[in-house]
């Protein structure tokens, strides 16, 4: 499944890039992310309690950042697995200056397997939208709250 979109964040590109590559901030932004530990260069292991409404699953995930080009671009790869199945997502993030604001243009692929794929077909896209919506809302908050 493809997901793509553009979000505007009220901060400079450098700031947004730094926020989005800071594991502590990512942990706060990724919905349901309970912990995040460094396991390598730009690679983290995470525990996610993710879901939609009361439908929740616990996933263990690896989060890695690749192709980092501050402040223009990086690629985020998340692979999680848990009892309801697995989720794999990879997305290209491009940061474009928009008159002092930053446009975060993202496009990527999300693949879901196991139980979630076999029974959740009609809701998966909505769930992905919901999660990315939450993610950027959290990011916006972080950009605000840590604004100096």
């Amino acid at each position: 499944m493809k997901i793509e979109g553009t979000e505007k964040i009220n901060a400079t590109r450098e700031r947004v890039f730094d926020l989005l590559t800071d594991p502590a901030i990512l942990q706060k932004c990724i919905p349901g992310c309970e912990q995040m530990e460094k396991i390598g260069d730009n690679q983290y292991s995470a525990k996610l309690s993710a879901g939609v409404g009361p439908v929740k699953g616990v996933f263990t995930a690896t989060v890695s950042m690749q192709d980092l080009r501050r402040p223009d671009h990086y690629k985020l790869v998340v692979e999680g697995k848990g009892q309801p199945g697995f989720v794999k997502g990879s997305g290209e993030l491009n940061f474009v200056d928009d008159g002092g604001l930053t446009q975060v243009q993202y496009s990527g692929d999300v693949n879901v397997g196991g139980l979630l794929a076999s029974v959740g077909q009609r809701m998966i896209q909505g769930a992905a939208n919901m999660m990315s919506g939450k993610f950027f809302a959290n990011l916006e908050n972080e950009a605000k709250s840590t604004d100096s």
């Binding site: 939609v52 409404g53 439908v55 769930a127 919901m130």
Partner: peptide, 12 residues
């Protein structure tokens, strides 16, 4: 209000 009750998918 019903308009405000439904927040998102499976979420009220």
């Amino acid at each position: 209000k019903a308009d405000d009750f439904f927040v998102d998918m499976l979420t009220t």
